[in-house]
Design a protein around this nucleic acid. Structure first.
Length: 480
RNA sequence: GGUGGGUUGGCGGAGAGGUUACGCACCGGAUUGCAAAUCCGUGAAGACCGGUUCGAUUCCGGUACCCACCUCCA
């Protein structure tokens, strides 16, 4: 078995991954707040941890990995959307409108992430399904002196947890000195954060020992990870922006509620994303959702390829140029390995991923394999040991380990348009022209095909037509 | 102010203290009716200043610039 190394944010080191229980690897990744379409930045952790999920399944067996990714469906942004709809005259109670909004958003999320070839996690809990677990966790924290109730709020007492700040490398005093913390009258200390807050009649709420209210943002992940994975598990992931305060607060809550359990062994954070060198923002006009990209004609597989071409701990720049290069590469690979059944991935590819998810090295390895196949097709001299069938199937199997060239994402490139009629026509024109030396008809047809985005390959062995990535079937009308 | 990250050839983007990264683009050649595709090959790098070393783009220190987080955010 390959040794997997992962970079642990908590120790700032790359470490050998040793499962707590090889029979059941457990991973928790912070999922989306379901108030709107997922934007491109939301997609990065999905793709990153999907690759990790696939690697772990490959190494430990598909039935021995549990991947939990939550939906945050308690949130003021959702409430606001529902309130706006109600004001605009939408039918139904606020609770119903909220449920409607979260349902539709979850549906979008699934559709968009499916398009990127991301496997569904083993479990996708929703915060609203675990309110009871959150309440009992909060009660436990109060009982141990780690939290206190005041004015309908419950707050976590940051000073009661000596390790607070260890994950993000901050000290409580430094942060207070930064003076960018909200000082609320019900807080003992400015850094204390909300576990529970009161809800007015116009907001969703649940009955609790502290009155009708709703949970703070951080407690849900502590409660759900505990319910579904236990007090200690292997990997906790998310975007780097969650490192503080979200994950810091999760650690404080979970470790105080379950002392000695250890909580997550490895913390992994993906870096943020830029668009054409700039932070994605609505004001710059470079903000877009995954759906918008898909609708513009970028295949989900292309988006995935671009994501994988940068290591997850580096800032990724989404550019039009990269997307086009990715599309071209994938198009060639699909043409190369059409209808090939996958076999086991190459050791080099598994090694690349095992080195802290070096997806870029994995792509380099795929290029290497593709180049061998192209050389083979061109009739190059290859070692006697070369086994073509094996090479093709290993290529596809390798690509599939990173979620490329799977049946789920291959439609865009493999929806074959039947060009065989035109192929035969061009072939006959050409063989005539070989006799007459008049190539005008051949050139006319060839240029029309190129104009329509078809790649024309003519060689001694015959004519081959391949639809290119800019193929436009409408332009073929009348050619045959 | 605090914390963390980055700066590699035309572009993207890795690894490794000493031997070609890789992809795309470019250039030369083969091939082709002309092309395309393919094959062969050339060129091109490591922000700046010091230090360690026989040798550093790779380790250490400093400078400059860029970025992110510290507030909802993947």
């Amino acid at each position: 078995m390959t040794t997997i190394h992962l970079h642990n944010t908590a120790t700032r080191k790359k470490q050998v991954f040793t499962p707590l229980d090889p029979e059941n690897i457990r991973m928790y990744v912070c999922g989306p707040t379901v108030y709107d379409r997922a934007h491109l930045g939301n997609a990065r952790p999905v793709v990153v941890f999907d690759v990790l999920f696939r690697l772990l399944r490959h190494e430990f067996g598909a039935d021995h990995v549990t991947y939990v990714r939550n939906f945050t469906d308690v949130d003021d942004k959702i409430n606001n959307t529902a309130l706006e709809r109600q004001k605009a005259g939408a039918e139904g109670t606020l609770e119903e409108l909220i449920a409607e909004r979260t349902e539709e958003t979850i549906g979008w999320y699934h559709a968009d992430m499916d398009a990127l070839g991301a496997m569904r996690p083993t479990k996708e809990p929703r915060a609203t399904q675990y309110i009871g677990a959150m309440i009992s966790m909060i009660e436990g924290l109060i009982a141990k002196g780690h939290a206190y109730a005041k004015d309908g709020h419950v707050l976590f007492r940051v000073r009661s947890y000596a390790e607070y700040g260890a994950l993000s490398g901050r000290s409580v005093d430094d942060m207070i000195a930064g003076a960018r913390v909200e000082v609320a009258p019900f807080k003992e200390d400015p850094m204390d954060f909300v576990l529970w807050k009161p809800s007015g009649d116009d907001l969703p709420g649940w009955e609790s020992p502290w009155g009708r209210g709703r949970p703070g943002w951080h407690i849900e992940c502590s409660a759900m990870s505990h319910e579904l994975l236990g007090p200690s598990f292997d990997i906790h992931g998310g975007g780097l922006d969650l490192q503080f305060p979200h994950h810091e607060n999760e650690i404080a809550q979970s470790c105080c509620a379950h002392p000695g359990a250890g909580f997550a062994s490895v913390w992994m954070h993906n870096e943020m994303l830029l668009v054409e060198g700039k932070k994605m923002s609505k004001s710059l006009g470079n903000f877009f959702t995954v759906r918008e990209l898909l609708d513009q004609g970028y295949a989900g597989e292309v988006i995935r390829f671009v994501m994988l071409s940068t290591h997850y701990r580096k800032t990724m720049d989404w550019t039009e140029k990269k997307a086009q290069e990715a599309e071209k590469t994938l198009w060639e690979w699909h043409a190369l390995a059409k209808d090939v059944q996958p076999s086991a991935p190459s050791a080099a590819l598994v090694d690349a991923l095992s080195d802290d998810l070096n997806t870029h090295a994995a792509i380099t390895e795929l290029h290497r394999q593709a180049n061998v196949l192209m050389a083979f097709e061109a009739g190059a001299d290859l070692p006697d040991s070369f086994d073509a069938d094996q090479a093709y199937s290993q290529f596809v199997g390798s690509a599939q380990l990173v979620g490329l060239m799977t049946p789920e994402v291959s439609d865009w490139a493999e929806n074959a348009y039947d060009l065989s009629g035109l192929e035969m026509l061009l072939e006959s024109y050409r063989s005539q022209a070989m006799q007459t030396k008049d190539f005008s008809a051949v050139d006319r047809l060839k240029n029309s095909l190129i104009e329509a985005g078809v790649e024309v390959r003519m060689s001694k062995s015959g004519v081959e037509l391949l639809a290119g990535s800019n193929f436009n079937p409408e332009k073929l009308a009348g050619l045959a």
